[in-house]
Nucleic acid binder design. Structure first.
Lengths: 256, 256
DNA sequence: AGGGGCTAACGGCCTAACCATTCTAGCGCG
DNA sequence: CGCGCTAGAATGGTTAGGCCGTTAGCCCCT
């Protein structure tokens, strides 16, 4: 528990003056560019700047904020890296407010994985949680377009298997499309966030065991049929088998 | 489907020379600072720079890359905004590689929500998927420390309710701690990612209905006991009730 | 032994200028 | 009248050099 700032446990050394130390507030200027970032970000969050809004040009922002162009540019870089603005060059160019994409968030999560903040085993388990939760929603909401897209990926997978050109991308794409079938963009985003780390660890595991055989493909096709029929329980059990095999491969146990 | 680059549908205007256009690679330099960002980011992803590594000072990076200091600074800003480096000032300061935090990812997701890339309803449903998947894992793995932390939050919540100082933070903190009880950092990350958007929408909904009454708190406490006993099914049904009430409140139906 | 001041290293910010890209307005020509 | 081309203006991208505030470490003096 932090002690109150004014309390001094050392009575032998009294405060130099009668004024309490509290009257001095912490004075840290911080970074000017950060202040600008906050200001624009708040404007966007408050809805006073909507996607498509054009911000003033760099040189005008300098005048408005009373800072140099370098400072404004640094602020714009940060906003651009956050996916909040898009910067175009040429006349009639300049910073434009844009809606951030889910890919950018996924990239951030990928960084978390690669920096070994957590392991491939953790990711696999998280994916299991997500995908099993997806199943009932997908059974309920999948439409013809979703099923067609899933089938198309299976066809491409079969072709790739026959030609020996299979890559883990195809498997992760199937699972992303499955998440899309929930018609919930937040869930799609989470699934896509885990896509790249998954594919990465699958590729690593491939050296130890074949990444997907006819069995895995058949499970994908069975899953489509179960979803088409709306049989959530059947779909779930198929998915459990499928994921368990994947998990054991990730864990370094090439049972298949 | 994108057309091959060499194909020209306009036979009336043949290529100026016999050399195929393919031999000329795209020359647009793009942004120099972006090249530097990529280079450092790759170094980090390859593990050649680990968290804690100190990068050279700005002025030395200028010499190494052969660019001006402003360019280096912009690159460092982007890396900093991505949470990959931390910049300290003063002697022995400079850029230090750091492990990105889950909070940053959550902030990105918050932006996605506020820019209405997806809705609060979507987030709520995603959270439901996640939390129901968390339950069995938490029942299996929660240790005494997890249960103590959960109980402590309930106590704080009770106190806040009695004093009228309750905020949605407390509820979202409970659910984050629940995710922590799985001892899976990827799942914790996903839960924390959804924390801020959830709290935001809960605060919005608070104007229409009390955010959490004694009933919600009691459900939290019941949940702890069910987890302590390892009764996953009981815990699951409690959580379903709890989330359904929350979902209806988000959807604008103040039944409670 | 300890405190205060000095110094070098480093990031934060500024100014002034030039380059590269892109759009547009205007002009000339058919 | 209309079409195409060109020059210029607007805008971001980059550079060089410099000044200032902050910090850690060192040394000297008490």
């Amino acid at each position: 528990m932090p002690k109150p700032f004014v309390a001094d446990e050392h009575p032998a050394r009294p405060a130099r003056s009668a004024a309490p130390a509290d009257i001095f507030s912490r004075v840290s200027a911080g970074r000017i560019s950060e202040v600008i970032v906050e200001q624009i970000r708040d404007l966007i969050r408050q809805g006073r700047l909507v996607p498509g809004s054009r911000l003033p040009a760099e040189r005008e922002l300098c005048d408005r904020f009373g800072v140099s162009r370098v400072t404004v540019r640094e602020a714009l870089r940060v906003l651009e890296a956050s996916g909040l603005v898009d910067i175009r060059i040429g006349v009639r160019g300049g910073p434009v407010v844009t809606a951030p994409s889910t890919d950018r968030v996924g990239e951030g999560i990928t960084d978390l994985v690669t920096m070994s903040v957590f392991s491939a085993v953790d990711v696999t388990e998280a994916r299991r949680v997500l995908e099993l939760g997806v199943i009932p929603l997908a059974c309920e909401r999948a439409d013809a377009a979703d099923l067609a897209a899933l089938t198309e990926v299976c066809d491409r997978t079969q072709e790739a298997l026959e030609q020996g050109t299979y890559r883990a991308d195809l498997s992760s794409e199937f699972h992303c499309l499955l998440a899309d079938a929930t018609h919930n963009k937040a869930i799609s985003m989470l699934a896509r966030s885990l896509r790249e780390p998954m594919a990465m660890s699958l590729d690593e595991a491939r050296t130890a065991a074949p990444i997907m055989g006819a069995k895995g493909l058949q499970e994908h096709r069975d899953l489509i049929e179960a979803i088409r029929a709306g049989e959530a329980d059947a779909a779930r059990s198929i998915m459990v088998d499928h994921l368990d095999r994947t998990a054991s491969r990730i864990a370094g146990d090439p049972t298949e």
